[in-house]
Structures are given as C-alpha cells and as structure tokens.
Nucleic acid binder design. Structure first.
Length: 356
DNA sequence: TGCATTTGACCAAT
DNA sequence: ATTGGTCAAATGCA
C-alpha cells in the first residue's frame, strides 16, 4: 500500500519534472528567438538538464547520478536551493543566520542553502582580490588551495552581523591567467544594500516615464534595459567608459564615484539577477521593455583597456560562470544595487527557499 | 576607537 | 588523513 502510494507519487513527480522540462525548453526557444543573453540560455539549459536528471533519477530509482553530468546538475541544484530569506518578506531577517549559528556553526556549511556562481574577472592592473560588485565585503579567511598557485580569499557581506546577510564570496586568482580572478558567490544579499535599490527606485518614481537614460560619450555603446517589477526601468548606457565621469550621474547613489571597472561588475550583477530570476518572472522580465542583448555586453577585452564588460558566460560545475573583463581599482559603488527590488518580486520557492 | 584584515586553529566533508 | 571552509584573536589602519 505504501509502496503503491510511493509509486504514484514518483509518477507524479516524474510527470512534473518532464512537464517542467518541456516548459523550460519552450522558454529557451522563446529566448532563442529573442536573442536573449547567453547566460539566460545557459541557465535555462541548466534547468532543463536538472529537470531531466531528476526525471531520470525517478525512473531509475537512483537518487543522484555519478557521471560527469551529475556534477553539473548538482551544482545547479545548489542554485535551485538558493538561499536566503529572499523568500522571506523581511530582507533583514536575522533568523536564518542566527539560528544556524545557534545550532552549530559548522553544521551550517552542510545545511545552508547554497547558490553559487563563479565570476572570472580579469583586472588590468593586477590589483588583487579587490573586485567590487557593488556590495561591501569583509574578508574572513584565506586558504591555500591544493593544486593552485594562488590562495583563495573568503569574503562575507559586511552586514552579516547586523542584518544577518548570508551572502559570501570567494576570490581566487586564476592559475592560467593571473589577471583573471575567479569569484564564487554564495547566497544572495538580504541586507539593506539591497534596499538601496529601493531608494533608487523611489527616485525613479519621480520620473514620469519611469525611464532613465544615461549616456556617455565615446568608445562603444552598451544598452541595457532592466525591468523593475511593474515599473519598467530602462537604463541606457551609451559609450560606457571614462574614469573622469561618474557613471550614471543622475543617480543619487552614495558618494563614491564609480570607477570604470565597477560598471562591468555591476552590469554583471544585473545580468546575474536577470538570468537567475527572469525565468520565473517572465511576465515581468519578459516584457518587451526588457532586453538583455548579449551582443551589447560582449566586448572583447583586448578592445577594452579601461573598462570591463562581460565577454564570456558559461555554465560551470558550481552554477553559472560569468567571465568578466574588469578593470583595476575598486570602490564600493552602488550600481550593483541597481538590482531588482525584492519587494517587487515574488521569489520562486525553488530558487529562494531557505533552510537552516 | 572602531572597523577591516591577517592568520593559525578548528571542524566537517570526503 | 587530507582538504576546504570558518572562526576568532591578534594586528593594522584611518
């Protein structure tokens, strides 16, 4: 009797997985037609593979695969287990972190939901590890990693203590190319840095069109459109470049002038948000106003001396890997907060469920 | 003085 | 036993 119930459940799960796989494939098809960004496609592919892997597991009865593909899937799964209290209505919830801490700080590593993405960043100057993505990080450790020439730095969000933000990242210089840094992110920010975007958004509400356009002279043109919930925000950054000019000058971001390389990081941040979220918010992000043309964002690093942009995106065993050519020095700049206000989004539990 | 970084030690996973 | 990830005291810096 129990066995029969179990079989029915598995059949239902199998059906669900296959259905989801089909829907994802259809989404992918749609993205192909709209020439969406490569990372979006990669992400969809990963999800499809994940669905099919689960389906196969249900069929074969094996919980997890052990082939090469499963590694990819496992990585993706970690993304789906995605972190943080995003699902939580309160971004400042300290419950997650504190509870985990109280139970056992070391258990956390095992049970804490992980959402990992890797970012390869090349710096023009070799400035080490100081790569900015718009958030403020605090280094809490460094380790020599076996088989690598460079130590790995461990960073967590500065606001972890005060706001329970669980986001962490690792920074490691590439062996193959010392100018490239591999950044591995875990967790999403639940700190008020996220809410800074809300402030930005408030500003934009003053704009009747809810559209912001910033134009920079020369070099090349990059256009990005972000859709913020129901209010479409469009950011057009023509000719991103220059250190002498603040990027997005009309933003009332906190003080620090944004140095050129940050733009790349922030573009990355936005892209990641887009690629990770848009699939489940197609009605929002998939609006005609939302375009993320990889063509715009793909710039060969050899053509960019003082400014970095995404020039390659690939999936990796730990999730999505973005390869960004990013420049030099770093300040905490805010455009990364140019993200998508949490309170305007409904987060898919598959993506943002939090467990301790 | 307060915050960030460094670094050796500890723990969990493999 | 080895390795990766984290902690926390010591130290540095503005």
């Amino acid at each position: 009797m129990e066995k029969r119930k179990s079989m029915e459940w598995e059949q239902k799960s199998l059906s669900n997985e296959l259905t989801q796989g089909k829907e994802l494939a259809e989404q992918l098809m749609s993205h192909l037609h709209h020439s969406s960004s490569q990372e979006t496609k990669d992400f969809l592919i990963s999800k499809i593979l994940f669905s099919y892997d689960k389906a196969l597991s249900l069929l074969t009865g094996s919980g997890d695969g052990s082939d090469g593909e499963s590694k990819h899937i496992a990585a993706h799964e970690s993304m789906l287990e995605s972190p943080t209290s995003f699902g939580n209505s309160s971004p400042l919830s300290e419950i997650s972190d504190q509870d985990c801490k109280d139970k056992n700080v070391f258990k956390k590593r095992k049970t804490m939901p992980r959402w990992t993405k890797e970012v390869k960043v090349s710096t023009g100057t070799g400035l080490d590890g100081s790569l900015d993505d718009g958030y403020s990080w605090r280094k809490y450790g460094q380790k020599d990693i076996l088989g690598t020439n460079h130590p790995r730095g461990y960073y967590r969000c500065t606001h972890r203590g005060t706001q329970g933000c669980v986001a962490t990242k690792q920074v490691q210089k590439s062996d193959a190319d010392p100018t490239i840094f591999v950044l591995t992110y875990r967790g999403l920010h639940t700190c008020s840095q996220v809410s800074r975007s809300a402030r930005v958004k408030e500003e934009f509400k003053g704009n009747q069109n809810k559209t912001l356009e910033v134009e920079k002279p020369n070099q090349f043109s990059t256009e990005m459109s972000f859709s913020f919930g129901r209010a479409g925000l469009r950011v057009k950054t023509d000719h991103l470049d220059t250190r002498e000019n603040d990027i997005f000058p009309s933003f009332s971001f906190p003080s620090t002038p944004i140095e050129s390389e940050n733009v790349g990081d922030h573009i990355f941040s936005a892209i990641m948000m887009e690629s990770n979220l848009m699939d489940d918010y197609a009605p929002v992000f998939g609006s005609p106003a939302t375009t993320f043309e990889s063509d715009y964002l793909t710039v060969s690093p050899c053509h960019v001396s003082s400014f970095g942009l995404v020039h390659e995106v690939q999936t990796s065993e730990s999730g999505l890997t973005e390869i960004i050519s990013a420049p030099t020095s770093v300040t905490n700049s805010p455009i990364g907060d140019f993200d998508f206000s949490i309170d305007d989004l409904e987060f898919h539990p598959d993506y943002f469920g939090l467990k301790c």
